[in-house]
């Protein structure tokens, strides 16, 4: 290692961004190079000096004043017109559909297919006939009776007749469907991923995340299909503790190999509102506890978490890290 490279790595090491294997290499260089040793001391001195301009918490009066001014500005904004709201809804719906393109395509194909085949009765008869022979990889889909209430998926176009009150709205409907198949079936997986993010019922989210997590833990092709991403979204954002806990369990096997997973687990350790999940995150991180970024977060938690149990567990894990190294 030359000194120029060592100088760069000194900065990275000082801020906990140097991979462990390079830390050892840098230590060996510093032991033999006086100039670089001084460089490190100077940088550490800078870090100490910079504390003289600390980050201070904003004064509560200042926060309240800023919020009041913001609320006034928000109140002064003109209310969104109906077409703006509609546009926003379409955009949001479109974004939701974009999140699971295969699922959407599947629904459209199913709708068209069911209609072509002569409707519900034929499809139901066909399903019944094939039910016992259903192979694990083969999914079956049935349409609901045509009088079942449907939901509007999106609006394709809106036109107003000149000089009249008549409006032409073209829209697409989502028709309730039923599908059955193996967990390995890509169509089933797409629907589970969609359910993990969009289901209004906690039970549905819980079931879908639980099944996806079990697939990941069992090592069943949990990459490249967005399952990991779906679990990370659930871990970060789902309001149900049970769902977040299952997502965390599903991500466990990938914490060592996937940096994005590690970051999501570290975020959970720092920010999750449930102490059980923060504690579980510490166990999930144990295989990579020697990693610099993990040690940094563990050290933050060990010093400042408001839960004494979590502080103790973090300290215990930290104390084991050098032995593992």
């Amino acid at each position: 290692m030359n000194c120029e490279l060592a100088h760069e790595r000194i900065v990275l090491a000082a801020y906990g961004e140097l991979p462990d294997e390079q830390v050892h290499e840098l230590d060996r260089h510093l032991a033999a190079c006086t100039d670089c040793s001084q460089e490190r001391e100077q940088l550490l001195a800078l870090k100490t000096l910079a504390k003289a301009y600390p980050v201070v918490e904003p004064d509560p009066n200042f926060v309240a004043r800023s919020r009041m001014r913001l609320e006034e500005s928000l109140d002064a904004l003109p209310p969104k017109r109906w077409y703006e709201r509609l546009g926003q809804r379409i955009t949001n719906n479109f974004a939701n559909l974009q999140a699971a393109p295969a699922g959407v395509v599947l629904l459209l194909i199913v709708g068209a297919g069911a209609g072509t085949l002569g409707g519900y009765e034929y499809a139901a008869a066909r399903t019944a006939h094939n039910a016992t022979a259903a192979a694990a990889s083969q999914s079956k889909i049935t349409a609901q009776p045509s009088d079942t209430p449907t939901e509007i998926a999106n609006i394709s176009s809106i036109e107003r007749e000149p000089n009249s009150e008549i409006i032409h709205v073209t829209y697409n409907q989502l028709v309730p469907q039923h599908i059955q198949g193996s967990l390995d079936d890509p169509s089933i997986r797409q629907l589970l991923m969609l359910a993990s993010e969009n289901a209004t019922s906690q039970g549905v989210r819980d079931d879908s995340v639980g099944l996806l997590a079990a697939e990941c833990r069992a090592g069943h092709a949990c990459q490249g299909e967005g399952i990991r991403d779906a679990l990370m979204v659930a871990l970060r954002y789902d309001k149900s503790e049970a769902v977040r806990e299952k997502a965390l369990e599903g991500l466990q096997p990938y914490v060592a190999e996937d940096m994005r997973v590690r970051d999501a687990v570290l975020e959970a350790l720092l920010n999750d509102s449930d102490p059980r999940i923060r504690t579980a995150a510490i166990s999930v991180l144990e295989p990579v506890e020697a990693d610099t970024s993990v040690r940094q977060v563990l050290s933050t938690v060990a010093n400042s978490d408001h839960n004494p149990h979590i502080r103790t567990v973090s300290r215990q894990v930290l104390s084991r890290a050098p032995v593992i190294q």
Binding site: V55, V56, E57, P58, F62, V63, S66, R67, L70
Partner: peptide, 14 residues
């Protein structure tokens, strides 16, 4: 806003 305002003000102020 209430969830993130403290962090936003702290950063902008510093």
């Amino acid at each position: 806003v209430r969830q993130y305002e403290q962090q936003v003000l702290r950063l902008a102020l510093h």
